[in-house]
């Protein structure tokens, strides 16, 4: 009886070319990494790096214990920090809402002119961290809470507007059509068909941003824009490490509390 022999196919996960491309990609990434590493560490003084554990131990020794008595000088800056975050968030939201409506494809007054401008404002605001905004504003309008509030506000515009315009673009169009069919004006359509649909998203986004802003406003003082960061800057420049430790602890506690509040509020909304 003749034995039928077929060619045994060898099984491979990918075809040879796909394999090559994949490996080529990883190799390129590795090469890029190596080049970047060399470029980045060109001016690194390795002695400092090898010295680091010692430095760390030294720093640790100087940082502990925290100087708890310094706390009484921190309450007021903490209150300022809270205000910077809250007022900045409100400022940002006030500007972000109209921009979001201009940027959403389905509500923008003009797809070819207004929308690109709104999108650019969003990207510009999002690309620049609030600390950089603060740096600029301190140089322009002088140090203080106002610079911090405006910096937080400017950074929040992009964040809130981006998430909000995405929510606006995702609304159910049927409801808009139904309200349009009643003979409503544009303002009434926004009020009755669009706002109710995006309101929960809006509250969620705002509280979320407020939480992030608390976190960011704690360090704005480093560049002179008010809040607890001012104390941090002062303590750092006088090398008062026990105070720095206390400030870190306070910042950490603030961040944890604001995160908890924001999670609670967002949970209650939805």
């Amino acid at each position: 009886m003749p034995v039928l022999r077929t060619v045994q196919p060898t099984w491979r996960k990918r075809t040879t070319t796909a394999h090559l491309v994949l490996w080529g990609g990883w190799l390129a990434l590795a090469a890029l990494f190596a080049w970047c590493w060399r470029e980045m560490t060109k001016n690194t003084i390795w002695a400092f790096v090898w010295d680091a554990p010692e430095q760390a131990a030294d720093l640790g020794a100087r940082m502990f214990p925290p100087r708890w008595s310094y706390m009484e000088r921190l309450w007021w800056p903490l209150w300022d920090t809270l205000n910077i975050a809250t007022l900045g968030t409100i400022l940002g939201i006030l500007i972000a809402v109209p921009i979001a409506f201009c940027a959403a494809r389905n509500t923008t007054p003009s797809v070819y002119f207004v929308r690109p401008v709104a999108l650019f404002v969003i990207v510009a605001s999002r690309s620049i961290n609030s600390l950089i905004w603060a740096l600029l504003l301190v140089a322009i309008i002088g140090p203080g809470l106002l610079a911090g509030i405006v910096a937080i506000g400017l950074r929040s515009i992009g964040f809130v507007a981006k998430l909000l315009y995405e929510a606006i673009e995702e609304i159910d169009h049927g409801q808009v059509e139904a309200i349009t069919a009643t003979g409503a004006t544009s303002a009434q359509i926004i009020d009755y068909a669009i706002v109710p649909q995006v309101l929960p998203a809006f509250f969620g986004i705002s509280v979320f941003r407020w939480d992030i802003n608390i976190r960011e406003s704690t360090i704005l003082g480093l560049v002179g824009a008010g809040g607890i960061g001012l104390q941090l800057q002062a303590s750092l420049s006088t090398l008062a490490w026990p105070q720095v430790t206390l400030i870190f602890v306070v910042i950490l506690a603030t961040v944890v509390v604001s995160e908890w509040v924001s999670a609670k509020v967002r949970g209650a909304i939805t």
Binding site: M40, T41, N43, V49, A52, Q55, L59
Partner: peptide, 9 residues
């Protein structure tokens, strides 16, 4: 920065 010195590292 305090531990490793200034710079990108």
């Amino acid at each position: 920065v305090a531990m490793f010195g200034f710079g990108p590292f």
